[in-house]
Amino acid sequence: MSQESPKEFEIVREFEVDVPPEQVWDAVVNASGAYLWPMDPPEPRVGGSGPFGSTVTAWDPPHRYTNRSENTGMPTQSANQLDYTIEPRDEGRRAWVRYVHSGIFTDDWNNQYDGASKHTNFYLHTLCEYLTHFAPRPVTFAQVNGPAVSATQQALAAAAHALGLPDEAAAGTKTGVRGPGGRTLDAVVDYRNPYFLGLRTEGALIRFFGRGHWGAPLGISVHDFAPDADAEANETAWQGWLNGVFGQA
């Protein structure tokens, strides 16, 4: 890979969700494991510490929150900023959200931007699924990655086939899928495209990441809202399922 000059990027999304602004705010600053991965909440002040060594640069609950890092520790990114603006709609019964992810990619710009942009769509969709169906229930988070052979563009389709998911099962389809141990999970397909697959069960959000499009193995995250959820058991079960799909002992 040839070294490229550092270049700024900006990913902007706007959406509305049928919950009050305060509920969106709480999810963004306190419930990251419910739709992303667990992160320490930010210090509630400008200049406070934020996730992954960032600094809080805007803090106006429940309307504006920004954090920025000038040293991401990532080989292809030298600066990272996340900005949330939340406004009320319908006399505070609904919320409008503007999300801006910006920073500097130092190399492999097109591939990095494409991956970040597409992941953003899926993460924000998962945030809305959490807010609409599960908030404010506490979450138990688990994540696993497939073996190296799953780092292909065909891996997500292979996972869908192993689930018993028909090709025509688009978002909104209610279906039974074959989970770990051959157990049938009653689920709704809440998101599906060539890159990502989202399943919503009565008690969990299960997300499949076809990262082979960007040279990485397929990943799964499980956001489990059951009172007796066990992160280690979920990781063991889904890792075994993934290894079975891709022929690993």
Rank of each mutant, 00 (worst) to 15 (best):
D167A: 14
K174V: 13
E14L: 11
W214M: 00
T173E: 10
G176I: 10
P51C: 05
V28P: 03
N71W: 06
L197Y: 00
V245L: 00
F134T: 01
V222P: 01
T175K: 09
G182V: 08
D40C: 04
G176A: 11
V100W: 00
H125Q: 12
G244C: 08
F208C: 08
K7V: 03
G247P: 14
G176W: 12
L36W: 13
F208P: 08
T120V: 05
Y35N: 07
N30T: 10
W238P: 01
W238H: 04
N193E: 11
V100E: 03
A151H: 06
L185F: 11
N30S: 11
P217D: 08
T72Y: 02
S69F: 01
E91C: 05
E129A: 03
Y84S: 04
V19K: 04
I206T: 15
T76I: 10
D60M: 14
T126N: 07
H125K: 15
G203A: 08
T120G: 02
G47F: 01
V188R: 12
A233V: 12
A116H: 04
F196M: 08
D83H: 13
D224C: 15
G179V: 00
Y130Q: 07
S117H: 15
V24I: 11
S102N: 09
V139E: 07
T76R: 12
P227F: 08
G172M: 11
L82R: 10
D230I: 03
H223F: 07
A142V: 03
V149D: 13
L242R: 05
W241Q: 07
Y35G: 11
S5D: 10
A229E: 04
V189N: 00
P217G: 02
G212F: 02
G48C: 02
L124A: 05
W96N: 14
E10V: 13
A27L: 03
K118W: 06
D83G: 11
F134I: 01
G146F: 03
E14M: 14
D190T: 07
R137L: 13
Q153C: 07
H101P: 00
G215L: 02
G73A: 02
N71C: 03
T76A: 12
I86E: 06
E22N: 11
H213L: 06
E22C: 03
W238V: 01
A116D: 12
V29S: 06
H161R: 15
D114P: 01
G103W: 02
E202G: 15
G215M: 00
L185S: 06
D107A: 14
